[in-house]
Amino acid sequence: MSDYIISVKELTKCFGDFTAVNRISFDVQRGEIFGFLGANGAGKTTAMRMLCGLSYPTSGSGTVAGWDVMREGEQIKRHIGYMSQKFSLYNDLTVWENIRLFAGIYGLSKAETEKRAAEALERLNFSSERNTLVGSLPLGWKQKLSFAVATIHRPKVVFLDEPTGGVDPITRRQFWEMIYEAADGGTTIFVTTHYMDEAEYCSRVSIMVDGEVRALDTPARLKEQFAAESMDEVFRILARGAKRGE
């Protein structure tokens, strides 16, 4: 088995005349926290949707957890977790019912679901909210719960699309602690974000501009390469030339 959990070559997605993702290539190592950065409209979500088997690539190739993104989308789905930009658990179900639903979909047994749910709720300090409707939780809690649900089946890779958007700094901090914990457990993290301080936490970072990957390296080396003080500066140098606005 190769060391790369995600491997992408020349991956392209066009919507009519518009090329949302233009021949991107990169590899993600097992156990890495891979930061997938880019301005709004750069094509991050489209690229991520192709990797998750939600969208067919127009051309190019790629594998996720050893399965082909073009032909084996349903196999990929067994081995990944996904947390979309928009909160998408069921608001009219309770915390426990949401966990039970997704654990059941991934084929966890009743006993196993019970055990993992208790663990996850314990870790989140959520045990008292077990029977609360998810819709009535504050956003930061919802995001933490989403992450717990996305990793309930211990996936090999988890895709996080702007998981901390609109979340307060303390909760953001807690969220990244959860990410680190999962990464320590051997789960590869593929995360998009607009917070450059978060980019510093990543093992490696790629920056997308106008549908292309313009830079890819560790945060330290990227700063060196662009003679920048912070990731924030690196991002600005690269994104300044962007033609696609918001």
Partner: peptide, 13 residues
């Protein structure tokens, strides 16, 4: 509309 179907679509169901 709620986006929940996407969360289902990304599972092996």
């Amino acid at each position: 509309e709620n986006g929940t179907i996407e969360q289902i679509n990304v599972t092996p169901v």
